[in-house]
Simulated assay, not measured.
Amino acid sequence: MIKILGILTISFLSVTLYAQEQEEKESITTVLDEWHKAASDANFEAYFSKMTDDGVFIGTDAMENWQNSEFKEFSKPYFDKGKAWSFTALQRNIYVNKAMDMAWFDELLDTQMKLCRGSGVLIKTDNGWKIAHYVLSIAIPNENVDVVVSLKKAKDSVITQELKAN
């Protein structure tokens, strides 16, 4: 009898934890979808309210490693013109740690740059889930990598030399 109660208790806890994890993933999905929508709507305040104050945005250019305040400054003119960017998730994978206070994800996006990949980290705050780190990259088919490398070779060489010099 004690064995059966133990098994039932473990089963109940497993189901409860699974349900809680699914609930957190739904909340994270909502945050990410609202974040992308805020950019599409050029809603500066809504967009940056989804990020932590010390959040980081890594863009597609080699030199785009934006701390939150710098990213706000860079992107404000785009939002002010009513044209920021439009990303729609086509596929998304979300992973939550056991404490359910940190999550990481990757997403395939439909954008004005065609297919892109986004990935990042969210932390759970007193105000809900916030994006702490986001990386955007352009998805390049393997068969096109040589062409892309050729196109960016000169600029990459300059940047590489500058970075090695520092």
Rank of each mutant, 00 (worst) to 15 (best):
T125N: 02
D54I: 13
D156A: 13
D54V: 11
Q91A: 09
I4H: 13
V31G: 09
A139N: 02
T9M: 15
W129Y: 14
E107I: 07
V56H: 06
L5A: 08
F105V: 08
F48K: 06
L32S: 06
P141L: 02
Y134Q: 02
D41T: 04
E21V: 09
S69I: 15
G118F: 00
W35F: 07
K3N: 10
I4A: 15
I140T: 04
D53T: 12
Y18Q: 05
I131W: 00
L122T: 01
Q161K: 09
F44E: 05
V148Q: 03
M102E: 04
E26K: 14
M51A: 01
G59D: 07
V145R: 08
E162Q: 08
H36P: 04
S75N: 13
D126C: 00
I94P: 10
D110F: 09
C116G: 15
M51D: 01
R92G: 06
P141Q: 02
V121Q: 03
Y95Q: 12
V147A: 08
V148G: 10
L108G: 03
E34Y: 01
D106G: 02
Y18H: 05
D156F: 11
G128M: 03
V15E: 00
D126N: 14
V96L: 00
S40C: 13
Q22V: 07
F48G: 04
V147I: 09
F79H: 11
F44R: 05
D54C: 11
T16W: 09
I159M: 06
T16K: 13
Y78G: 10
N65L: 07
R117Q: 09
T9C: 11
E64F: 05
K164T: 05
F87M: 06
L5E: 14
W129L: 05
E24W: 05
A154M: 05
V96D: 05
S27A: 12
W104F: 12
D101V: 04
S157D: 01
D156Y: 10
I28Y: 05
W104P: 15
I123N: 02
N97M: 10
D54E: 12
S27Q: 15
T111I: 09
I94A: 02
K50I: 03
D110R: 12
I7S: 14
Y47R: 04
T9N: 08
S75E: 13
S27T: 15
K37H: 01
L108Q: 13
K114Y: 13
A38H: 00
E45R: 11
L13G: 01
I28P: 08
A165M: 07
E21I: 15
V147R: 11
N65W: 09
V56K: 06
A165Q: 09
I131K: 00
S75K: 03
W129T: 02
F74I: 08
A42Q: 02
S27V: 13
I58M: 04
V149Y: 04
L17K: 06
W104E: 15
N68F: 04
K76F: 14
Q67I: 14
V149H: 13
A19K: 12
A103C: 12
P77F: 02
T125I: 00
N142V: 14
V145L: 12
V145P: 07
Y78V: 04
H133P: 10
K130G: 03
F57K: 00
S27M: 15
D33P: 03
S150M: 07
T52G: 08
E45C: 12
S11W: 05
K72R: 15
F12W: 12
K164C: 00
P141E: 01
F71S: 07
